[in-house]
Design a protein around this nucleic acid. Structure first.
Length: 107
DNA sequence: AAGGTGACCAAGG
DNA sequence: TCCTTGGCCACCT
C-alpha cells in the first residue's frame, strides 16, 4: 500500500531508539524523500494522540527543537533528558553524541 | 490548476 | 553565533 508519506515518516520516527535523537532532514531522507524536511515537521505537527510516535526525539539540525509553542519544547526537552539526552546551556543537544545513526535499512 | 503554508536546511554576511 | 535568503517537498483550499 502506498504508505503515505506521513505513515512512512511516523514509522521512521518510531524506530528512533531511546537515548538518541534524529533530525528532520535525516528522517526525510530515510523516508525516501530527501529534502522534504519541512514535510516531516508538518507531518509530526499533524500527529494525533493514539499514535505512539516519539516526536520528542526529533530535533532540527542545530540539535534544538523548533516548536512554535514554548511549552511543548520545554516538554520535549524534559522528555529527552529523561531518556538520557543532555542539553548544553544553549538548550541544544550534542548531535555528535546523540544523533541516531539510522542506517538505510530496507523495509 | 495555482498559490499558501510549515516543528526545515544550507550558505552567506 | 545570529539573522537573512533561497530552495526543498507534500498537503490543503
Amino acid at each position: 500500500m502506498p504508505a503515505h508519506t506521513f505513515e512512512k515518516i511516523y514509522k521512521i520516527v518510531e524506530r528512533i531508539p531511546t537515548g538518541k535523537v534524529a533530525t528532520y532532514g535525516q528522517i526525510a531522507a530515510l523516508a525516501g524523500n530527501p529534502g522534504a524536511a519541512r514535510t516531516v515537521g508538518w507531518a509530526l505537527g499533524s500527529l494525533r494522540d493514539g499514535r505512539k510516535v516519539p516526536w520528542h526525539r526529533v530535533v532540527n539540525s542545530r540539535g534544538s527543537s523548533s516548536f512554535p509553542d514554548d511549552a511543548k519544547r520545554k516538554l520535549q526537552q524534559a522528555l529527552l533528558e529523561q531518556e538520557g539526552i543532555v542539553f548544553n546551556r544553549n538548550g541544544r543537544v550534542d548531535l555528535e553524541e546523540f544523533l541516531w545513526r539510522g542506517e538505510p535499512w530496507a523495509d
